[in-house]
């Protein structure tokens, strides 16, 4: 009796599911995305960036009177308030939105541009490949955070520059990755067959070769989101990223730093948020790697 044959997607999901940690990671990510997308439902942007000085440093779970456009109401500070009386939990939720955007945009940019360059390098070879790979080597020679730091320091701190900096520093990894994959796949017979049918290079690369290179890219992309978020928060912490009062977990930590002794909750919660999201992406990336790796058979 032959074993049931599952489609590759179902097979992949079965393997992924077995890894409990990875599933937890996925769950956390989904939670964050939902919360981030619906951030305004919970707390309005104005509210979390506006000053509510009388409530400064309110403790966790305390209630205070806030001034909502002239009307005074009671408000529950789930995670306490920061030095301006702003709701920490609210700022964290809005910060989640920022972090997730940064993560996705930078990685998408790096995958598309880096992957595209890598595909071209791997497929055509020759001088083109040498130029592209030398470029990638040079970019890789500068450590990521340092490079991003230099770019933002040079161009001035802003959201756009942050995205640009992190996007550029994430590029070279995908150039290398996709080039290696393309080189392995392009000599296989089905590519020759497609060429014999008259397919253009563009079509061959896009339709035939690239889908077979996706696995390592997906894994790297997931881990890359984690790295991007870490870089973004680090740079914001140094004052080079998102500027206050816009909430970003890194700049929240930098603003709260002088109050380590008097109001530790302003430091603990944002940090936990950063750690949890990055952990979640790492867990999922690991899980994806294990599930997509054909060599791993328990």
């Amino acid at each position: 009796m032959a074993q049931k044959h599952r489609g590759p997607l179902a097979e992949f999901w079965k393997r992924f599911r077995k890894n409990r940690l990875a599933v937890i990671g996925l769950a956390i990510i989904i939670l964050y995305v939902v919360v981030a997308v619906g951030a305004d439902i919970f707390y309005t942007y104005d509210f979390i960036t506006g000053n509510q000085i009388p409530n400064a440093f309110s403790g966790v779970g305390s209630t205070g009177k806030i001034d909502d456009g002239g009307v005074k109401k009671a408000h529950l500070y789930l995670m306490g308030a920061d030095n301006f009386g702003r709701d920490v939990a609210g700022r964290i939720i809005h910060g989640a939105r920022v972090s997730l955007i940064i993560g996705f945009v930078t990685v998408a940019f790096a995958v598309i541009v880096g992957g595209g360059l890598g595909a071209v390098a791997g497929y055509y070879g020759g001088k083109l490949e040498t130029v592209i790979m030398r470029g990638a080597d040079i970019l890789l020679a500068i450590p990521n955070i340092l490079f991003a730091l230099a770019i933002v320091a040079a161009l001035g701190p802003s959201f756009r520059n942050l995205l640009l900096a992190i996007g550029i520093t994430s590029l070279p990894v995908y150039v290398r990755l996709v080039r290696a994959s393309v080189m392995t796949v392009k000599d296989q017979e089905f590519v020759e067959a497609a060429r014999a049918q008259g397919a253009t290079d563009f079509r061959i690369i896009l339709v035939h070769i690239l889908p077979n290179c996706m696995a390592p890219v997906i894994v790297q992309a997931t881990l890359g989101v984690a790295q991007s978020i870490l870089s973004a928060t680090s740079l914001s912490f140094l004052g080079l990223g998102i500027q206050p009062p816009s909430p970003e977990w890194g700049n929240m930590l930098s603003e709260a730093r002088p109050y380590l002794i008097s109001a530790p909750h302003t430091l603990i919660f944002p940090g936990l948020a950063i750690m949890t999201v990055i952990l979640a992406y790492n867990l999922m990336g690991d899980g994806l790697r294990d599930a997509l790796d054909p060599k791993l058979k328990r």
């Binding site: 680090s234 990055i278 867990l283």
Partner: peptide, 16 residues
């Protein structure tokens, strides 16, 4: 896994 996920500057502050 936690070690690779913790932002260094935050860890420093927590340790302090």
């Amino acid at each position: 896994l936690i070690g690779i996920s913790v932002p260094a500057f935050w860890l420093g502050m927590m340790l302090i």
